[in-house]
Design a protein around this nucleic acid. Structure first.
Length: 306
DNA sequence: CGGTTTTGACCTGCGC
DNA sequence: GCGCAGGTCAAAACCG
C-alpha cells in the first residue's frame, strides 16, 4: 500500500518480525486511506488467511489484529480536512454484498516501544496525538475498536448492556451518532454508533475501552455477542493465550471469508452467510477507527454496483 | 418504580 | 478571542 497509509499506521504491539508483511495482510492494510489518498485497489483481508479465526490468530501464534487494529484514529483523522468528499461519482461506499471487516485499536498509552523500527509511524502518531485530544496525558484515550456492520438496527446486540447517554448530529452525516456506555458498574467501556452517511445500511460501531467484566449472562447468542466477547475487546484483541475463550468457531462460521473483499466492488458470500446465521440481519465489518468515521468510510468502501 | 431513552445545555479542544 | 464540532451531562419523558 501507499506510504501514506503506512505512515498513518500506528502499532500498539511490538512486531519485530514480518511487521510490514503482516501489515499488508491485515484488515488495517486494507485501509490505505491516509486521509487524502483513497486507493482503488484495497485489500482488506488477505486471502492468505483461510478463515477468520486464522485471520485473528494469524499465521503465527501472534494475533495479526494488533497490527490490523492498531491504527491511530488520530493518525487517520489527521487528514480529515482533506478527506475526499462524497460528492462526484457518488462514492456510495459499501458494496451491499461485500463485507469489509477491519478494526482498530488505540492504545491508552502510546507505547513508544511498540514502534521500534517504526520511527515514522511513531512520529505521525505523536504528532497527531499532540494535535488532538491526546495531547493531554491525562486524557489518553482508551483502546478503540471500530466495526462496521451491515444491519437494519442501529444498536447491535453484542452481549453487553449499554445505556445511551447521548446523541449528537455529526457533521457531514445526516445520521446522528449515538453514545453508549456499558451499564456494568465501573466498566469504562463506551461505544459510539452511527450509520454510514453514504450507506445507511451500514452501522459503524466504535468501542472504546475494555470491559472489566464478562459478558452478561443474558447473552443471546448473537453473532456480535460472540464477536465482542471480552477477549475480543481486549487490546490485543484477545489475550494471546486467553483468547481461547474467544469463539473462534463462531467467528469462523459467522465471519466466513470476511476478508473476501476486493475493494473493487467484488462480492463475497459473507452477506448471505451472516444473514443466514443471525437473527437481525447483520454483517459485521471492522475498520480502523479514524476518529471521524465519515472521513474514512468513503474511501474504505467500494461503491455498490449500480 | 427502576432502568433506559431523549434531548437541550454545557464543556472542551481545535482551527482560524 | 471566537466559532465550530465533538463529547458528555442531566433532567424529563418513556417503558416494562
Amino acid at each position: 500500500m501507499s506510504d501514506d497509509f503506512t505512515q498513518s499506521y500506528y502499532h500498539q504491539q511490538p512486531y519485530d518480525q514480518d511487521d510490514d508483511q503482516r501489515r499488508n495482510n491485515t484488515a488495517a492494510a486494507a485501509f490505505p486511506y491516509s486521509g487524502s489518498t483513497p486507493q482503488n485497489n484495497m485489500q482488506v483481508f488477505d486471502p492468505s488467511y483461510l478463515s477468520f479465526s486464522e485471520f485473528f490468530n494469524g499465521p503465527t501464534t501472534q494475533n495479526p489484529f494488533p497490527g490490523a487494529f492498531d491504527l491511530s484514529p488520530e493518525a487517520f483523522s489527521a487528514g480529515k480536512e482533506e478527506h475526499p468528499p462524497p460528492s462526484g461519482g457518488g462514492e456510495t461506499p459499501a458494496t451491499p454484498n461485500s463485507s469489509i471487516s477491519s478494526g482498530s485499536t488505540e492504545a491508552v498509552e502510546y507505547d513508544e516501544n511498540s514502534n521500534k523500527g517504526k520511527k515514522e509511524i511513531k512520529g505521525t502518531l505523536e504528532n497527531d496525538a499532540k494535535s488532538k485530544k491526546g495531547s493531554d496525558p491525562k486524557k489518553q484515550r482508551q483502546s478503540r475498536y471500530a466495526f462496521m456492520t451491515k444491519s437494519e438496527v442501529d444498536h447491535l446486540e453484542d452481549g453487553y448492556r449499554w445505556r445511551k447517554y447521548g446523541q449528537k448530529a455529526v457533521k457531514n452525516n445526516a445520521y446522528p451518532r449515538s453514545y453508549y456506555r456499558c451499564t456494568t458498574q465501573k466498566c469504562p467501556v463506551k461505544k459510539r454508533v452511527e450509520r454510514s452517511f453514504e450507506d445507511p445500511s451500514i452501522v459503524v460501531t466504535t468501542y472504546e475501552g475494555q470491559h472489566n467484566h464478562d459478558v452478561p449472562t443474558t447473552l443471546r447468542g448473537s453473532v456480535v455477542a460472540g464477536m465482542f466477547a471480552p477477549t475480543m475487546l481486549s487490546p490485543p484483541f484477545g489475550a494471546p493465550e486467553g483468547s481461547s475463550s474467544f469463539s473462534q468457531e463462531l467467528l469462523l462460521g459467522q465471519m466466513g471469508n470476511i476478508y473476501g473483499y476486493g475493494g473493487d466492488g467484488g462480492t463475497s458470500n459473507v452477506t448471505n452467510h451472516q444473514q443466514n446465521l443471525s437473527g437481525p440481519r447483520q454483517q459485521l465489518h471492522q475498520f480502523p477507527d479514524y476518529g471521524l468515521l465519515q472521513d474514512i468510510i468513503p474511501p474504505a468502501f467500494p461503491k455498490p454496483e449500480p
